[in-house]
């Protein structure tokens, strides 16, 4: 459902490589983009979500803008489709709760698209932490800074459609990884949030976030759109975990070739990734959960908690003090 989120372009290629999966088509409410994508990926474009959902589908991937995910999820649930939903799953908690209700009453699966849980390096780090290799863990500091994504899709930098900027876009991945790796919840959030980079957009472009976690650890996230658009790649996802035995550091996208060209290019050099694509493993888990009629390993709750934390970042920045998450 929709090519608004650029991940849709990756998903369609991966889906086609999966032997038991048939790609029926896609919906896109944006006529021009829909036509372009239909041509580029040789796939049937439906002009509305409703017409797509009339095709007796088993499952959909919701790649609409952040603010229009609720509508898409409600339509898909009503049509009896299992749902893989891009992150952040919505822009307000009430939308997210409505999505949970729609999915529950339809009895379909809902998986939040957090691909980094399926990254092999992240999985090893989680195993090491959980096996106690670091001893007692004190804290973790993560970087998920990037370029501004508006060159790919302008709505990412639109308050109305994205619900926020860098904080909305980039706190959710590391928040989810922290909850998953350390098996804990976020207790308290402190955030500096501002827009020092692009005065022409109406969203935040920089954020430094600190959490206190329920297990006694603390955690940092740099979610800024602070890499220039000429950077050798979109950005980074790294984290360093510090405990009583020292530290463990993971640079999830370190596996790249450095390509330098004599031809003019916006990225020169260009870091050409060769690592495993975690999206493939994520899609495999989504379909396995449907096949085996069980809950997917990443749930609505995971998407909801990450959204809640992102929204709390804005609240903290607004008052200049840490904000404790309510016990729901």
């Amino acid at each position: 459902m929709s090519f608004a989120h650029l991940h849709a372009e990756g998903y369609i290629g991966l889906l086609r490589s999966m032997p038991d999966i048939e790609v029926v088509g896609f919906s896109d409410l944006d006529h021009a983009r829909g036509m372009a994508m239909s041509q580029q990926y040789s796939s049937i474009r439906f002009p509305s979500h409703e017409t797509l959902l009339e095709q007796n589908l088993d499952a959909v991937i919701v790649c609409t803008e952040n603010a229009t995910r609720r509508e898409a999820v409600e339509l898909a649930a009503r049509a009896g489709c299992h749902i893989l939903c891009e992150k952040p799953i919505a822009v307000t908690l009430s939308d997210a709760l409505a999505m949970r209700d729609a999915v529950a009453s339809a009895g379909v699966n809902f998986m939040t698209a957090f691909p980094m849980r399926f990254d092999p390096s992240i999985q090893i780090i989680r195993e090491l932490v959980q096996a106690g290799d670091l001893g007692r863990v004190y804290g973790v500091n993560g970087i998920n800074h990037s370029e501004i994504p508006r060159a790919h899709r302008a709505w990412f930098a639109s308050r109305e459609l994205a619900g926020g900027g860098a904080v909305m876009d980039h706190t959710v991945h590391l928040t989810d990884l922290y909850r998953w790796i350390f098996d804990t919840e976020i207790l308290e959030v402190y955030a500096e949030v501002s827009n020092p980079f692009y005065p022409d957009v109406d969203v935040d472009t920089a954020g430094i976030v600190t959490f206190k976690l329920e297990n006694g650890m603390f955690a940092g996230i740099d979610c800024s759109w602070s890499r220039p658009t000429t950077y050798p790649r979109w950005g980074h996802l790294k984290l360093e975990i510090v405990g009583e035995r020292g530290s463990l550091e993971v640079d999830a996208f370190a596996q790249h070739l450095t390509l330098t060209s004599t031809k003019p290019s916006s990225r020169n050099p260009n870091w050409h990734g060769w690592g495993s694509d975690p999206n493939k493993a994520m899609l495999t888990e989504f379909f396995a959960s449907i096949e085996e009629a069980r809950e997917p390993s990443v749930t609505w709750k995971d998407g909801f908690e990450a959204l809640r934390v992102a929204l709390t970042c804005y609240e903290s920045a607004g008052i200049g003090q840490p904000v404790r998450l309510e016990n729901l």
Binding site: Y138, S194, V242
Partner: peptide, 16 residues
């Protein structure tokens, strides 16, 4: 020991 300190500058810039 291990610490993270966040600074908010008057200019709107920030530091970790």
């Amino acid at each position: 020991d291990y610490a993270l300190v966040t600074l908010g500058f008057e200019s709107g810039a920030m530091a970790q």
